[in-house]
Design a protein around this nucleic acid. Structure first.
Lengths: 150, 150
DNA sequence: TGTAAATTATAGCCAAGGCTGTAAAATAAA
DNA sequence: TTTATTTTACAGCCTTGGCTATAATTTACA
């Protein structure tokens, strides 16, 4: 079970990788919120913070605080007692995030992972998929769907 | 570009997914530290906090603080001016994390992603790969390496 | 209409993980 | 041996993202 490398990557390169992972972690919250709000509006007609809290599995106080921040950042609009809405920027981010999520989940399932596991792991993975990796995933899925007479 | 779902997942199920993603995020730091310390010891003979800081791309003060926490958690041992060491628990976590990292990076490359991108994205993705998904990835890689006369 | 329930907001707390700046200790070099 | 450099440690600050408890507001119902 010895799997240590013989050499390490270049110092700056490695630091850049970790930095990118940290950036992705920090961006994840905003993506989760706008994606969920967009989904709630699409399926339920409205997105109330109570429902966001329930679906994220956090307290409503946490949601209120985070929503306030995302509102300042220009992603969300709140109409008190009338639910949460997305700005154009928020809607664009939601669409993009949802797409990444779907691609990741579909790829995992194509690789033999069951749906529930795929959905769960995709929830974390999606935030760390760069443009190149996303393109590679899409290409694989396209190939598989074309040659689906396997 | 409308990709909204018609229905939402079950509320509890969705909350559990987000919770798991948050748990993975929280565990990521410890994994990054022990993995890097283990790699440094293997390749350089020692792991000093200065080098950990440089390779993570954070300040040394941040490393000191985090190392103190991980020491309390029983993963790391510090011998001042003699570098950082891993407990058995830390070594086990490092081995496991490194393995996951390698599997993820190899799979990305097998799917057509270039090495640098694979390494970067793997740095974030690895923390969100559950046992089932890891097994699926390993199976794919095994199949590919067996039928490598493609 | 008036009251109960639901929803939203606020206050205050905590831990993690960043940072800068300063101090101390050990090592290396003059 | 003294001095300079490197390494480590510490103090104090910030933001994010959690929490509970309490308050305020709105909606819904009796």
């Amino acid at each position: 079970m010895k799997n240590t490398p013989e050499t390490l990557p270049n110092e700056q390169a490695q630091a850049a990788r970790f930095q990118q992972a940290r950036d992705a972690r920090n961006a994840a919250t905003a993506q989760d919120y706008v994606e969920l709000i967009s989904d709630l509006i699409a399926t339920e007609g409205e997105a109330r913070s109570v429902d966001v809290a329930k679906r994220l599995g956090v307290s409503h106080a946490t949601v209120v605080k985070t929503v306030n921040r995302l509102q300042k950042e220009g992603l969300i609009i709140t109409k008190p007692y009338r639910g949460l809405f997305l700005t154009d920027m928020g809607e664009n981010l939601a669409t993009e995030s949802r797409h990444r999520h779907q691609v990741v989940a579909n790829l995992l399932m194509a690789l033999g992972v069951d749906e529930e596991t795929a959905q769960t792991d995709a929830e974390g993975i999606e935030h760390h998929i760069g443009a190149k990796t996303l393109a590679a995933f899409e290409l694989i899925l396209k190939k598989l769907s074309e040659g689906e007479a396997s």
